[in-house]
């Protein structure tokens, strides 16, 4: 393959990918790829891998309601998520969209790129886990769908096969009156990698929770749903939810010490963020929004 190709159709892209002697770099918004390139160049470890630019593929465009699910094309940017009119369950994702990088990054970066990059601190993952999103992958062998936990396997590891391109995210409909939110903790206001982040989508009827989907990021190699907490919340009133968060619900986390925070701090802060998020979702303001 040439150093750079920007095909005009998915079929062409898949053919180029299949024919490439070594796997090319798949390029979307470039907001992970170009910084990585700068870091490598600084220490003379630059690679000149061919680039397959996905930004011209019409099949990857669009954000639409497909009746029983929403489809978010792989070219959809954070800014598009931020600015679109979406059902209340998407609010966690939309709140995340306003906090990813700065406006420049939001204007270019794709949601799917955020997942494919598979950083433990990717802000897109907790809200999408809480939405039970699946990712659609195309290859010459056809399409397959993977639930997010099957797709993101570890720190910077995904189930993407060398001949595959991620085409879209598929999100099942939630109850129309769902409440959702996202909390991000970082050491400055803008352009900050999360120390911890939490997302929740809560469905309630007559003030009682009948389904809660909650995920935490930056506290494990891949963001996690918290099934014990979700079960514990079922049947509680919205107002009771915050108090239900207990240390045992966070047992599956495996936070680490790094330059941003200690592991112990992350575990504590995670519980605080969850309580605050649940408390916020119980406020009347959220109801108005729904």
């Amino acid at each position: 393959m040439e150093a750079y190709r920007r095909p005009g159709s998915l079929a062409e892209a898949l053919a180029l990918l299949a024919a490439a002697p070594a796997p090319p770099l798949l390029l979307a918004g470039g907001t992970d790829l170009y910084p990585a390139r700068a870091a490598a160049e600084a220490w003379m470890r630059q690679e000149r891998r061919p680039v397959l630019d996905l930004s011209g593929l019409p099949e990857l465009a669009g954000l639409e309601d497909r009746g029983d699910h929403w489809r978010i094309g792989a070219r959809v940017t954070w800014a598009a998520i931020r600015d679109s009119a979406l059902p209340p369950a998407f609010r966690a994702l939309q709140e995340a969209a306003t906090q990813v990088g700065g406006a420049q990054v939001q204007n270019r970066a794709t949601l799917v790129g955020n997942l494919c990059n598979a950083s433990p601190a990717a802000d897109g993952v907790p809200p999408l886990l809480a939405l039970d999103a699946a990712i659609e992958l195309a290859s010459p062998r056809g399409l397959r769908r993977l639930a997010l936990p099957e797709f993101i396997l570890g720190n910077r590891r995904t189930a993407l096969a060398p001949d595959e391109i991620a085409t879209a995210l598929l999100i099942p409909h939630a109850a129309p009156a769902a409440r959702a939110g996202f909390e991000k903790l970082g050491a400055r206001s803008y352009l900050v990698i999360s120390i911890v982040m939490a997302a929740a989508v809560i469905e309630a009827e007559d003030g009682r929770i009948h389904r809660a989907r909650i995920a935490l990021g930056a506290c494990s190699p891949v963001a996690l749903r918290l099934p014990e907490l979700e079960v514990a919340l079922e049947g509680l009133t919205l107002a009771e939810a915050a108090k239900a968060v207990a240390p045992a619900h966070l047992a599956a986390l495996s936070p680490i010490d790094d330059v941003r925070a200690t592991a112990e701090y992350r575990r504590e802060a995670a519980a605080v963020l969850l309580r605050r998020l649940l408390a916020r979702l119980a406020t009347p303001a959220m109801e108005v929004a729904a």
Partner: peptide, 11 residues
């Protein structure tokens, strides 16, 4: 607004 350092000329 975009960071021109992250935009490939091709795009």
């Amino acid at each position: 607004q975009v960071c021109a350092c992250l935009v490939p000329l091709g795009q």
